[in-house]
Amino acid sequence: MTRGATHPSERFPLARTAHPVPEAERAAILAAPGFGRHFTDHMASAVWTPEADWHNHAVAALEPFSLHPSAAVLHYAQEIFEGLKAYRHADGSVWLFRPERNARRFARSAERMGLPALPEDDFLAGIEALIRADEPWVPVTTGEESLYIRPFMFAAESFLGVRPAERIVHCVIACPAQPYFASATSGVTLWVSRSYTRAGRGGTGAAKCGGNYGASLAAQVEAEANGCDQVLYLDSAGEDGCVEESGAMNLFLVTSRGELITPALGTILEGITRDTVLALAPEFGLTPVERAVTFKELSTGITDGTVTEVFAAGTAAVITPVAGIKGEGYALTIGGGEPGKQTAALRERVLDIQYGRVEDTHGWLRRAC
């Protein structure tokens, strides 16, 4: 923290809950938390109005919101969110991984959705104040456990009319979490949908907003009905066009020429893990490349062996190998169906940095408590 900066506990004063989860119950949850099912005792929040700007900053008991049935978010989906994790290191300290990048993406998403920008200092202070309040909820890792943190913002004004709302609520909640995919190290299979696309140019594809994920659910059901774990989205040209991303993850290809290729930004989410992988690539003898990737290039490369590995990357999924890609009338197996060596090595390096097992030479870690 810089000299003269306001401590998170001062910017977001804490009013402790009178009814915390009992210690024994919390211990049982931490032993097998799952993902997104159990939540900590508190939440951080703030409110925005045109007259008062951001105000009412606080950390208080986790509790339901009270919304009028006409609240704008319920009718016009004016909402954004972020996802990041807090990691317990071997000495007991708790660290965040590149949260400043989440803060900046949150601001870009807010602009796209007609919401007020939350100052980066407030974004970080709210998260850190919540972690300090609920530090016992951060798991001691025996594998890849962490505290998943969900900042979000929504239109809370009671008004039926299509315009940016004039009362906005920002909130941060947290939940202890295990790996998102049970098959995180063995590999997932992706389904190429002919029925659904994720986003178009000028749309909200680059924003992290709930509507993008709500619209993805039908495609996810289709993928599961075809025995796949996630969807591989293509652009509006379908199988004659380009690869975009996979569900809630960015996609990467490793080639026999030593390239690490990922689709260019524009209609996809600018992932923090995506950027991390691109920065680490040269350390593994890989040349990072951001460009359009046609589905024909991907499928042909898998078939002829010029694409040697495929993996997906995201905060929840970390780095997840892709073992196969299926669509109507075809099934492609990547690298014999086994996770690739470069995928495994990159995954291990990212996790080692996050959990403090190797030196953070990039300055990506930020101590929370």
Rank of each mutant, 00 (worst) to 15 (best):
R201H: 10
A206K: 06
I168F: 13
M153D: 08
G202Y: 11
S158N: 14
A177W: 05
E145F: 05
S158V: 04
P164V: 01
G210M: 09
A174Y: 00
S158R: 15
S146I: 09
C171M: 14
E157Y: 10
A165R: 04
T142M: 11
P179T: 10
L190N: 07
P176W: 08
V188F: 02
A155G: 14
R201A: 12
S193Y: 03
T197P: 04
T142C: 08
A177M: 11
S186H: 08
C209N: 11
S183I: 03
Y196A: 06
P164Q: 11
R150S: 03
E145L: 09
T189P: 02
S195K: 15
A207D: 14
Y196M: 09
G210S: 12
A184C: 07
I173V: 15
C171P: 00
E166H: 13
L147E: 15
I173S: 08
Q178D: 11
S186W: 07
C175A: 15
K208W: 11
V172A: 05
G205S: 09
R198Y: 13
A165N: 03
G202A: 05
I168H: 04
C175Y: 14
L160D: 11
L190P: 01
I173T: 11
F154R: 02
S146H: 11
A199H: 05
E166V: 01
Y148E: 12
P151A: 09
S193L: 03
F181P: 03
K208F: 13
A177L: 12
T142N: 09
C209I: 07
S193A: 01
L190M: 13
T197I: 11
Q178K: 00
P151F: 10
A174L: 09
C209E: 06
A174S: 14
G200W: 10
G202P: 06
F181S: 12
C171V: 12
S193E: 11
Y196I: 05
Q178S: 14
A174R: 02
